[in-house]
């Protein structure tokens, strides 16, 4: 009985909040700067916070600011937002394999909180993940994103220069911290991450694809190629 209660807690809402703290830290400098840039682009405090509240997608929000500054029309801004976030189709489908069965209403609720960061934190956990855990991770990440957007707009400045620069490593360091433990356990993880890293570098550094497409394409190609190869190897082993 007690064991069950403990493991429940480990995989529940509180555990999600705890696992999401590194995202909240990583979002801090990004959201502060977004708030600041939104202000200099001419958005009011209300509009800036509303965008973070309703959209909750860093890359898309940054791009929208540069488009607004360039005087782009509503249709262009909205279309670009969709393109940049197309990669979330893949993450949402992958997350569906990971999550415990749940009503569509609750899934529609937590689907809103899916970002690159919340997805990787939730999807790299072992075993099935509970709805509570996902909500915990997303809530603290969302809180940091919205509140720090407001603070950035109000104080009209970001962190001290050296801290702002040092903290720009935060989300990348988190991705590394999530990847390496699995890397040490399974060679397959090294192939998956390595191939996607090489492809994404090729796509972006040659300018072949924009960031949003590049991440989606390199992820999908790597995930499929490695699956085909491991399938072939298993087939060969059976013969």
């Amino acid at each position: 009985m007690q064991m069950a209660a403990v493991s429940e807690q480990k995989s529940g809402f509180k555990a999600g909040i705890k696992a999401g703290i590194s995202i909240a830290v990583g979002y801090l400098p990004v959201a502060l700067t977004f708030g600041l840039l939104a202000k200099t682009t001419g958005l009011t405090l209300f509009e800036s916070v509303l965008m973070s509240l309703l959209v909750f997608a860093g890359a898309a929000q940054y791009i929208s600011l540069s488009l607004i500054a360039a005087g782009a029309g509503a249709a262009v801004i909205i279309f670009n937002t969709f393109i940049v976030n197309i990669r979330h189709f893949l993450m949402s489908a992958s997350l569906n394999e990971k999550m415990e069965p749940e009503t569509r209403a609750k899934k529609s609720l937590y689907a809103f909180g899916l970002t690159d960061e919340t997805f990787t934190v939730i999807a790299t956990r072992e075993g099935k993940t509970t709805t509570g855990f996902a909500l915990g991770v997303m809530l603290i990440a969302y809180g940091s994103w919205v509140v720090n957007t407001g603070i950035g707009h109000v104080i009209g400045a970001s962190l001290p220069e050296f801290l702002q620069q040092a903290m720009s490593i935060a989300l990348y360091a988190m991705f590394v911290g999530l990847l390496v433990p699995s890397l040490k356990k399974e060679m397959k993880v090294a192939y998956l991450a390595g191939l996607a890293a090489v492809l994404n570098s090729m796509f972006t550094l040659t300018g072949l694809l924009d960031t949003g497409w590049a991440i989606a394409a390199s992820t999908l190609i790597s995930a499929m190629a490695v699956e085909v190869l491991t399938g072939l190897r298993k087939g060969a082993a059976l013969k």
Binding site: M91, D116, T124, A193, A196, S222, A223, E227
Partner: peptide
């Protein structure tokens, strides 16, 4: 496979 591939990217 996607979580590990996307981390690489």
């Amino acid at each position: 496979n996607i979580p590990y591939a996307v981390l690489g990217a």
